[in-house]
Structures are given as C-alpha cells and as structure tokens.
C-alpha cells in the first residue's frame, strides 16, 4: 500500500491526487497531499510512475499497513525501468510494416503474447 510521501521531494503539483484510481489522496492546507484512504489503495504503483520527483513510495504488501523506516527514500525504480520523465528514451513512431514484423515475431515467441 501507499506508505510514504517524502515532503522534501514533493512539489505539491497535485498529480497523485488526480491520477490515483482509488482516490486515496486529498489536498491539504500545506503543499504536500495527505494519504486519507490508505485502506483503499490497490497497490498498483501507478502514483510512483506519475510523480515527477519520485516523492512517493508504495510497499508491495497489499494486506495491511507496513510502516516504512524513517530513512527510506523512494527508489524511483519503476520510473527508471519504465523510461518515464527524465529516463525517457527517444520514442519510435510505429510504421504499418511493423505490424507484419510483429506477426512473425509472435509466431516464434507465443509466450510473449501473455504478459
């Protein structure tokens, strides 16, 4: 579940409030949003992906609150591996010939259809 908003990193942009599919956050009088419905968190990690300053940390245990140590800083590994924000690589535009290439690829690797 969502466990941490690191105040030093949070810019108060409000993105996590709007993009969380479970409506877990609410704006606060300060800049940093509050986690008001932690038990509704569906542990999808998507807020981490959308937070541009890696201020959020989601613990993989979805069954209950797992306090995070005071020293924890969000690792940002989901954003890094996804190539979001500063990790962005040059995007490639799809071509229609790619569709045909994909077909032969899928035939060779049927497993990759099941992600």
């Amino acid at each position: 579940m969502i466990e941490l908003i690191l105040a030093e990193r949070c810019t108060g942009c409000g993105t996590c409030i709007s993009i969380c599919p479970s409506n877990v956050f609410e704006p606060s009088s300060g800049a940093v949003p509050m986690i008001v419905r932690q038990e509704d968190c569906q542990t999808c990690f998507l807020c981490e992906l959308y937070c541009e300053t890696d201020a959020l940390y989601v613990h993989p245990d979805a069954t209950g609150h797992v306090p995070s140590p005071d020293t924890l800083t969000p690792p940002g590994d989901y954003r890094r591996d996804s190539g979001w924000g500063s990790w962005l690589k040059t995007p490639v535009t799809a071509t229609s010939t790619g569709a045909w290439a994909m077909y032969s690829h899928a035939q060779e690797n049927p497993l990759e259809e099941q992600l």
Binding site: L46, L49, S82, G83, K89, P91, V92, T93, A94, T95, S96, G98, A99, A101, M102, H105, A106, E112, E113, L115
Partner: peptide
C-alpha cells in the same frame, strides 16, 4: 487489426531486441 495501429499517434513504441516494433503488445500505463 484495423483500429489498434491508430494508437501509434499517441503511443511511443520501443523496438525490441531485433529492432522490430510490436504493434499488438503494449505497456499498460
């Protein structure tokens, strides 16, 4: 087959190891 490629205008495909674009396998987020 007809409609999925339309997403190419909004979705940045990354080529796989063989430098092929796999139009039908997309990352969810």
């Amino acid at each position: 087959w007809q409609n999925l490629p339309d997403i190419g205008r909004y979705y940045a495909y990354e080529p796989d190891d063989d430098n092929r674009i796999r139009l039908n396998a997309l990352r969810g987020p």
